[in-house]
Computed example of a mutant assay.
Amino acid sequence: MGGVNGGRIRPGRRFPRQVRFRPRLIQELAMADVAFVVTTIAVFALVALVAKGVTKL
């Protein structure tokens, strides 16, 4: 009853333990977060303006 991989649950190769630190990637992710928050606030402000305009009708 060896199975497909010899009865092992995990494959023989493992992921490397060290991950390269890239400060530019961190900065890009932070800028993406800022852009998301700004866009979300702008969308909610636009929805609030539209709702205010509809109530005046």
Results as ranks from 00 to 15, higher is better:
Phe15Met: 13
Asn5Thr: 04
Ala48Gly: 03
Val43His: 05
Val34Pro: 02
Arg20His: 14
Ile41Asp: 05
Val54Pro: 04
Leu57Asn: 00
Gln18Phe: 14
Val34Leu: 07
Ile9Lys: 11
Ile9Val: 09
Val37Met: 01
Pro16Tyr: 07
Leu25Trp: 06
Leu57Arg: 11
Gln27Pro: 02
Ala45Leu: 14
Met31His: 13
Arg20Asp: 12
Val4Leu: 06
Gly3Leu: 02
Gly7Val: 00
Asn5Phe: 06
Pro16Thr: 07
Phe36Gln: 15
Gly2Val: 03
Phe15Thr: 12
Thr40Met: 04
Arg17Lys: 14
Met31Ser: 12
Pro11Trp: 07
Val47Met: 15
Val4Lys: 09
Phe36Cys: 08
Val38Asp: 04
Arg24Ser: 08
Pro23Ala: 10
Gly2Leu: 03
Gly7Thr: 01
Ala48Asp: 09
Ile41Trp: 06
Pro23Glu: 07
Val43Asp: 01
Phe21Ile: 12
Arg22His: 09
Arg8Ala: 04
Val54Ile: 06
Ala42Glu: 04
Val54Lys: 04
Thr40Val: 02
Phe15Trp: 08
Thr40Ala: 05
Arg17Ala: 13
Ala35Asn: 05
Ala45His: 05
Ile9Tyr: 11
Ile26His: 01
Asn5Met: 02
Arg24Ala: 12
Lys56Gly: 00
Ala42Tyr: 01
Arg20Phe: 08
Arg13Asp: 15
Val37Gln: 01
Lys56Ser: 10
Val50Phe: 10
Thr40Leu: 04
Gly2Pro: 04
Glu28Cys: 05
Ala30Asp: 10
Val50Gly: 04
Val34Gln: 10
